[in-house]
Write a protein that binds this DNA or RNA. Structure first.
Length: 356
DNA sequence: AACTCGGGGTA
DNA sequence: TACCCAGAGTT
C-alpha cells in the first residue's frame, strides 16, 4: 500500500508524545524479557487495569524464567484464576520450559525462534522483540489496527484474518529504527488513551496532522469491522456432593473450555429438571447413594461464545465409586484448587450457607 | 477462513 | 445489550 505521511515527522510526534505522556505501568519498570513476555501474554484480550494486580502477584511468585518453568500447574492456574483464557498460562509455561531447556534460559531475540514458542503469535513476538530487545518488528494488535486504519485511511475489514497483514506491512514501513519500543508502545498507548473505539479525542491527538481520517472527518467511521455472531446458551446442574467433612470436586479435561480447572460435578441438561431426577442421575453414575438433593442457587455465566445457565444443588453422598478425575477435598483443599467464574459463584453460595 | 477460548469495563 | 480489550491455537 502507499503511505503518504512524513515518516520521520510522524515517528517524532508519536514517540515524543509517548515518552512524555506514557502511563507508569509495572511492566514498564523492567527490562527483563521474561517479565515483559509475561505482561504481553496477560494483556492479550485483557484490559490494562485488570492485568496490573495479576502481573504484580505473578512476577513476585515466579520472579525468574526458571521459577515458572518448574512451577506446579495447579499453582500456576491458581495464580491465573479469574484472568480468563487459561490456556495462556499453560502455553506460557510450555514456552518458558522450552527456553530453559533449548535456549539456555535466554529468551530468543529473533522472530523465527521466539514465535515458534507456545502461545507466542505474531503480535506477542513483535511486542517482546521490540520492547525488550529494541528490534524494529511490527506488533499489530487491535489498538494498532484502529489507530492506523484512521491515520492511513485503511478501509479493509479488521475482523478478517488476512487484514492484519496489511497493517503489519504498514508498520514495517513506518516503524522507527531508532526507538522501535516507543514507536510500537506509542501506537498502542495512543489507541488506549486518545484514538479510542468511540469518541476519539482528536483535538488532543499528537499525530492529528498526519491523520487522513481526521482531515476527511471519517474518524468515527473507522475501523471497518463486521459483527461477531452471538453466543449460545447451555443448561447445567452443578452439584456439591458432601460427605462428613469434604466435598466432591472434578477436574475438567486437559483440552477445551477451562482445561484442567476444577468444578463441582456438572450435568448437562436437555431441559429443566426436578431435584429427584438429579438424585437418580447421580446415584446411577456413581454406583452409590446420593440423596438429599436440594437446589440452593441459580445463576447465569456469560462466556465470549456461550452462556451457562446453572442451577446449583447440594446433596449427600456415601460409598461412591468416583472416577479418576474426581476427588474428595476438605474446605482448606478446596481453596487451593483453580476454579473459574461459574464455579466461584457456586462456591460463594455454599460459603454463605456455611456448607463449605 | 471459521471457530474456540474468559472475564470485565463501557456506551 | 453489544462491543471491546497490548490474540493464539485448532480445525
Amino acid at each position: 500500500m502507499t503511505i503518504n505521511i512524513d515518516k520521520k515527522q510522524f515517528q517524532q510526534d508519536l514517540i515524543g508524545w509517548f515518552l512524555a505522556e506514557k502511563r507508569d505501568l509495572p511492566w514498564r519498570r523492567t527490562a527483563d524479557p521474561y517479565q515483559i513476555w509475561i505482561s504481553e501474554i496477560m494483556l492479550q484480550q485483557t484490559r490494562v487495569d485488570t492485568v496490573i494486580p495479576y502481573y504484580k502477584r505473578f512476577v513476585e511468585k515466579f520472579p525468574t524464567l526458571h521459577d515458572l518453568a518448574k512451577a506446579d500447574e495447579q499453582v500456576l492456574l491458581k495464580e491465573w484464576e479469574g484472568l480468563g483464557y487459561y490456556s495462556r498460562a499453560r502455553n506460557l509455561q510450555a514456552g518458558v520450559k522450552e527456553v530453559a531447556e533449548n535456549y539456555g534460559g535466554i529468551v530468543p531475540d529473533n522472530r523465527k525462534e521466539f514465535s515458534s514458542l507456545k502461545g507466542v503469535g505474531p503480535y506477542t513476538a513483535g511486542a517482546v522483540l521490540s520492547i525488550a530487545y529494541g528490534i524494529p518488528e511490527h506488533a499489530v494488535d487491535g489498538n494498532v489496527m484502529r489507530v492506523l486504519s484512521r491515520i492511513l485511511l485503511i478501509e479493509e475489514d479488521i475482523a478478517k484474518p488476512k487484514t492484519r497483514k496489511i497493517f503489519e506491512e504498514a508498520v514495517t514501513e513506518i516503524i522507527s529504527h531508532d526507538d522501535p519500543s516507543s514507536f510500537n508502545q506509542g501506537l498502542m498507548e495512543l489507541g488506549a488513551l486518545i484514538c479510542t473505539p468511540t469518541s476519539p479525542k482528536c483535538l488532543l491527538c499528537p499525530v492529528r496532522e498526519h491523520c487522513t481520517a481526521f482531515h476527511e472527518g471519517k474518524q468515527q467511521d473507522l475501523p471497518i469491522k463486521t459483527k461477531a455472531k452471538k453466543n449460545k446458551a447451555v443448561q447445567y446442574a452443578m452439584v456439591a456432593v458432601k460427605s462428613v467433612d469434604s466435598v466432591l470436586m472434578e477436574q475438567r479435561p486437559s483440552a477445551g473450555l477451562l482445561a484442567n480447572m476444577w468444578q463441582f460435578p456438572m450435568l448437562e441438561l436437555a431441559k429443566e429438571v426436578l431435584p429427584f431426577e438429579i438424585e437418580e442421575e447421580l446415584s446411577e453414575s456413581f454406583s452409590g447413594r446420593v440423596d438429599g438433593v436440594e437446589k440452593i442457587t441459580s445463576f447465569k455465566h456469560v462466556f465470549s461464545h456461550l452462556t451457562w445457565n446453572v442451577d446449583g444443588y447440594i446433596a449427600k453422598g456415601e460409598n461412591l465409586k468416583i472416577p479418576a478425575h474426581m476427588k474428595w477435598v476438605t474446605a482448606a483443599e478446596l481453596d487451593l484448587l483453580p476454579i473459574a467464574g461459574p464455579v466461584q459463584k457456586m462456591k460463594t453460595a455454599l460459603q454463605l450457607r456455611g456448607d463449605v
